[in-house]
Design a protein around this nucleic acid. Structure first.
Lengths: 269, 269
DNA sequence: GTTGTACAATTGTCGGACAATGAATGGTGC
DNA sequence: GCACCATTCATTGTCCGACAATTGTACAAC
């Protein structure tokens, strides 16, 4: 951190280099991004606002349109602007799904282990179930009921079952009305999907899953927070037990769950 | 989800709209992004690999350099490439801090409430303390000790104290060796900072904080997981009590904690 | 009111160009 | 031979101008 710097250190290197670590002269396209990002974050630009055309923006910033466009790409990737109906740039709010898929990609690249995912999941899922029992609306309870019915109708069609299982937990998370926790859970859920797909057909846990889901749903409907939390805890622990009884090592990397895992879901981007 | 769609629904809307959701004809710069992203995610490009020059890449993709550069910007903002030492593009893995600051920005724009932050925080912090008690290395315990000493030496310098408080919790989270949880915690921690700054000098809770930190540190050092978890729970609850006793409403929006909150930290990006 | 058409605006893409800057190279002195 | 310096070169950041494709708009026709 070079906490102590003396100006008069005329011993080794000329003072023009070495100290004064390069002051942040950002390329123009980055300045464009920073500027507009700040405008959005400070509320001077609100979601839904339509930006001027590229030509006009370039004129105002006094840069070339190509350069401006590079800045726009940064904003676009950040989800702060989208090219709206009329192709015009409109200010937007980053979608949760964009964030979560980005996070899961990053976790994959960081070689996250199943142990880490699991440790977090076993914390979040019961907490979300508890909050769901507190906050669930009639509407979402209806969706949960539909989900459970479909799952029963599913029989032992593993693909169908897994999809509905994933959806059930997603709905519970949504019912909790807590976005930070939702964002934390989603990437983990995505990354654990391959494991879920591997477990179900080999261990034949269909019945156990349905029983657990029903208990959880009942608890949510009854606003019984501790019951919801406890059953979700059991249910999630079951999942880990299944994982381990298949001979997987929880410390093992998940690298090759790979790209399709994150790209496979993206429900309605 | 429009699960059932019949072709012959010639009743209301013409079939050319409504169904056939826009087929994915992506602009070239986006194809560049998708292509290279996939190469990274599938491991065909590994972190540290140096990409060809812009001119060469443009030639290979058979597009103009300007167009290619727009694609590069998308990758850059995603953290998948950085312009390395020699200005050459280098494949990289997204830094955690980039993710977390993006998440906190998104949460701000989504008008997240203190209630949501709190509900998540009270779950994560004890869990992290528990894991820290399990996994903390000597090295990080040393850092925690240093932090506690500095905090005591800090006296009632609120700025110094808050900074060290923030750092302490960061260190505990780091000690837990769990990146999903780390990523989940960090944005919340960032967003709650303004609240922490408001509470401390007005309620004079310096002593209570130090006592709690010492208890937590002792528990981590002794690998006493439940003790670490419990004290962290108390400590975090204290924080909320402070927040409420200042008359804030937990359901209140945090919009105007605004931009500086997220930009203020960024330790060493 | 709906349909169709002509026109204008805007974006996506292209080709070429150049200054600044870091890297590589080669010459020079010891 | 090795260290040091100047030159050359490659590459990026930026600019300019241009054009096809697409889309919004205005207006005419039914």
């Amino acid at each position: 951190m070079k906490s102590t710097l003396t100006i008069n250190s005329a011993n080794s290197t000329p003072p023009s280099k070495g100290m004064f670590g390069k002051l942040p002269v950002a390329p123009a396209y980055r300045v464009v991004f920073d500027t507009i990002e700040k405008l959005v974050m400070t509320g001077k630009l609100k979601p839904g606002d339509i930006l001027p055309t590229e030509t006009e923006l370039a004129e105002r910033f006094d840069i070339n349109r190509s350069t401006l466009r590079e800045g726009i790409r940064l904003l676009e990737q950040n989800g702060l602007v989208v090219r709206g109906a009329a192709k015009r740039l409109t200010v937007s709010v980053p979608h949760i799904v964009d964030l979560t898929s980005r996070i899961s990609n990053a976790l994959i690249l960081h070689d996250v282990t199943f142990r880490e995912l699991w440790e977090t999941y076993i914390i979040l899922e019961p907490a979300l179930a508890k909050l769901a029992a507190e906050n669930a609306t009639e509407e979402i309870i209806k969706k949960l009921e539909d989900n459970l019915e479909s799952m029963i109708a599913c029989g032992e069609d593993a693909d169908c079952f897994n999809k509905l299982d994933y959806e059930f937990h997603d709905l519970v998370a949504e019912a909790a009305c807590n976005r930070p926790m939702l964002i934390a859970r989603q990437p983990i859920s995505i990354l654990m999907m391959p494991a879920a797909h591997a477990i179900l057909p080999r261990l034949n846990t269909y019945d156990r899953v349905i029983v657990a889901h029903r208990k959880i749903l009942d608890a949510i409907r009854a606003h019984d927070q501790s019951e919801a939390s406890e059953w979700m805890h059991k249910h999630t622990t079951d999942f880990k037990r299944g994982y381990e009884s298949l001979g997987f090592d929880a410390g093992e990397h998940l690298v090759n769950s790979g790209f399709d895992a994150s790209a496979g879901i993206k429900p309605q981007a």
